[in-house]
Design a protein around this nucleic acid. Structure first.
Lengths: 207, 207
DNA sequence: GGGAAATGTGAGGAAACACTCGCATAATTT
DNA sequence: AAATTATGCGAGTGTTTCCTCACATTTCCC
């Protein structure tokens, strides 16, 4: 393994439809290989082969393997945030209870976007800065939740500080939703856990 | 990277004090290298060098790199469970509230055992069976918590099923404790999150 | 002390790895 | 249709890695 260049910036921009398809195929292949072989087994050769593209083409658009994974992380994180954003927008009329229901539902949906990929991306990426930065979707999520709580501050229990509560809510929501989707495949069980999550968070917020 | 043998069983048992020290040094070195270089960077050469031992000695006791990591995981998991076991033993007199306090305290303590190592082990190990098996300390923990809840079943809210509640409690406890220890270094902040955790779980269990 | 067993050594083989580079092909522009 | 630019290719380079093996050293036991 010779030294890998440190930049994670794209090497060149695709200008024709053909090359857009190549980049797309590479990203998709990266996702599949990550899921099938774990991070340590995600090699340039495997990814290129899976994408039906030569190694050389891979390096036309990504300066190194890490940047390819970083691009995939960015894209996945984008999708996650959009799920939560869409769910929370315009749901203020439903009050804290209703909003919490959609919040929890969105939490489950996020995990369902691509659970296997989600696992690898969240669990196995090395602590390289670029990847870490892309990974703290959690922190941006916490921000969204804090804003949500502030919008319903009047219904919160007296002592609850939105900033602190947002951390607790986001962390438990993500963890329980993750476990529900990954360890309990049946829809009935997932529904039960979703109901428990509602109990957990509502009682906490309103004491 | 030639084919790595698949067995993770120890190659031979150390019989003299000297070799016990070697095995110990290797495990300790593995932990340090994992923390310093992430899973992908944990190479046999680095580990042996750090342990002050030759590569050959490493392979006297471990058939491959993976088995070395697996042994470390086992050992770490053992430590975690002992923390929780000790905390819960004989604390039945304190009732649900008191027991929950020690439960939460133990959850934080588990994360503090060796936070950096804990992170790498929990987050970066590949999904190889042996490692997966060793990793589901969470499930055994859930069992401990379920037993705890059953012991105080009379104080639980009417609808609460211990088995389901144990999953929720274990998952949120682990996640929030993890975040507290890793993202909030100051003792004051950790204490605040610990109190929030108490609110979260007590309100949930007793509705 | 001497033989046997346990332990330690590290150079080196074989394979896998990230990445380059010179060149072929396809699309676009003029 | 010629020139230019964009895209695609994959054998090859230099490195890294896992792991073995023939041998050296230490400990144990009588």
């Amino acid at each position: 393994m010779p030294p890998s260049s440190t930049s994670t910036e794209p090497r060149k921009q695709p200008r024709q439809a053909r090359s857009h398809a190549t980049v797309e195929a590479l990203l998709e292949a990266t996702a599949q290989v990550l899921v099938a072989h774990d991070y340590k087994g995600a090699t340039t050769a495997r990814i290129a082969e899976r994408a039906g593209v030569s190694i050389g083409s891979l390096y036309q658009y990504f300066p190194n393997l890490e940047s390819l994974v970083a691009a995939l992380v960015d894209r996945h994180a984008q999708g996650l945030l959009e799920v939560m954003d869409r769910a929370l927008e315009g749901d203020d009329a439903a009050g804290l209870e209703g909003g919490l229901r959609t919040l929890i539902h969105a939490g489950l949906d996020m995990q369902r976007l691509d659970p296997a990929l989600h696992r690898v991306l969240m669990e196995q990426l090395p602590n390289v800065d670029r990847l870490r930065r892309a990974r703290d979707t959690s922190h941006r999520l916490t921000g969204l939740i804090e804003a949500f709580l502030c919008r319903h501050a009047d219904q919160l229990a007296p002592g609850r500080q939105p900033a602190l509560a947002a951390v607790v809510v986001e962390t438990s929501l993500e963890a329980v939703a993750h476990r529900a989707v990954n360890d309990y495949p049946s829809a009935a069980e997932q529904q039960r856990l979703q109901d428990e999550l509602y109990d957990l968070l509502l009682n906490y917020l309103t004491s």
